[in-house]
Design a binder for these strands. Sequence first.
DNA 1: CTGTTAGCGCCTTCAA
DNA 2: TTGAAGGCGCTAACAG
Lengths: 352, 352
Amino acid sequence: MLPGCYRMKQKITLKKIAKEFNVSISTVSKALKDSHEISVELKEKIQAFARYYHYKPNSLALNLRNQKTKTIGVILPEIVHHFFTKVITGIEQLANEKGYNVMICLSNESYEKEILNLEMLANGVVDGIILSISKETEERDDYRHFTDLIRNGIPLVMFDRVVDKIECNKVIADDVGGAFLATEHLIQNGCSNIVLITTPDYVVVGNERKLGYAKALKEYKVPVRKELVLKVEHENEIESALKNLILSSNRPDGIFAVNEVYAAVAMRVCRENGLVVPDDVEVIGFTDGVISEFTTPSLTTVAQHGRHMGRKALELLLDEIDSKEPNYKYKTALIQTDLKIRNSTKEVQMQN
Amino acid sequence: MLPGCYRMKQKITLKKIAKEFNVSISTVSKALKDSHEISVELKEKIQAFARYYHYKPNSLALNLRNQKTKTIGVILPEIVHHFFTKVITGIEQLANEKGYNVMICLSNESYEKEILNLEMLANGVVDGIILSISKETEERDDYRHFTDLIRNGIPLVMFDRVVDKIECNKVIADDVGGAFLATEHLIQNGCSNIVLITTPDYVVVGNERKLGYAKALKEYKVPVRKELVLKVEHENEIESALKNLILSSNRPDGIFAVNEVYAAVAMRVCRENGLVVPDDVEVIGFTDGVISEFTTPSLTTVAQHGRHMGRKALELLLDEIDSKEPNYKYKTALIQTDLKIRNSTKEVQMQN
DNA sequence: CTGTTAGCGCCTTCAA
DNA sequence: TTGAAGGCGCTAACAG
């Protein structure tokens, strides 16, 4: 036998089966597909043999022949992030139901790496791509790699962080609506000095959430105070900024943060400065995260439904892949957000 | 031109280039590899042309020809878990440096799905596999799918949750050592009634951590009290069990939990029953998670260094893939764990 | 009913 | 210096 045979079972191919039965390769191929062109007798023998040796068509050969891989690529800015893992879970779930594999790449928020990932995947490796753009790309505002991809005929779905000017399927959370809900809740609980802790301007989702905040203030005729809007790049900038506000004459009685960590840090800063949450100041975060449940008090948040977003993204992608339409119409799915009330706001509805 | 051309750029192949220059495909192939067999003149023309049209060899064809894909598969029990995302980050990082792609599959802790994933990946899709086995597989204690895989010559590296009897490369955290450190720390801080909150027996890492706990007690001659060992399947079982202990005559003054959530819940239960952490009772968790930083007080934990584990796992895998050795020797890498002291234990060394 | 041929895209002898 | 042939594994159209 072949060398190394005791260490490794050779994979069985059509060719080998053909040799075994002294028939042609195509006969075997047909037999295994239970073609009516082949005699029942021969089919049964071949099928039994194949089953016995666990014959499986070689994926690589099929990929080449069919020019598709039944694999979809997912490019994420990072993965150590509860929201993204939820999205992946959603994608994976549906992919599984549909017989697709999932290939995950991380851009690490880098423009360069995003391009590299894209090029790698575009080279026949996947049938379509789902992605959330990196911060650096948002900042550079340069999206040629996406238009190139689309021009090459590779289906692309953007989620969460999307680009308006790119024409493709999109899935976004209702950021404006969620932020509105949160701010509204604070207002209805009696807050009138509501701090917004958000990201720098180039981060689109941060801006959307700011819009919702502003909309709620306006709708409820709460005076807008510019100094209450804190734009921070990193959570360690929150402490000093927030402390100033707390020590000011007109101290905040509500805080809405555009993500979970900002909110958790804000709560800590409040506590360290003698404020009790939610009695003196109420706090709401925006997230799909896990921290919120374990802070003290547990944090009221706007839930994003990441898993749902993932499923929807893949649904749109498969829709496009399967579509033979000459002029396919792109869609943008808006995923509802809603308030998950915990103990950092006064209207306590659940214990823990 | 071809139909649909304005919608999609045709991909350029060796064949097309060959036609363009009226030479053979193999000439083009060689020219692009800068072979000395081809005239400088022709090479330059072909190379310029290829560059202009962004020629990239088709991955699918290369995969088939080389019988390898430069892709490695990762099978995880779940992904909504900080530790696993850290591991992925580590794998992805090194993969990137080495020019490999990463394909991620989730077993969702299911034996069946683990097998499905394995079969899918084994079919030529990846050059090797990194995996952490599902709980269900641990429970069933059935590992034939792994031995089959190995017999088929597909390199496999197990990490974190590994199986002793399977011969392959492994990466494990020093669970015993970490648990020892944690327990030792509690003892040195003066605790003598130390609760262990752990998982059911079939979970290997839980057992390992229990071993470390027992070892520390023994070494420091702290009397072992069986009733202090709480085995829970789910965190919601912690409340009643722990409450009983707290209300008993000999109440706990230390808690070591084998994961982050158990520890966070334990702290909450303590607080709700009038105990102050760390004054009345000190708590340590085991994890690589993110919750610990945001609990009140922040949680002292045993850090697992997931990213390091991921890197190491891939390192071993590539080592095996590249190895031509007739009798390759499997290794087991032990990744150090260490104590990250926060505020749930008395010996406060950092603020926050 | 079975086999031959061609092709997916690339690479690697070997021959001219 | 160039090209032809064969093969990776599979499928499908077309012959016999």
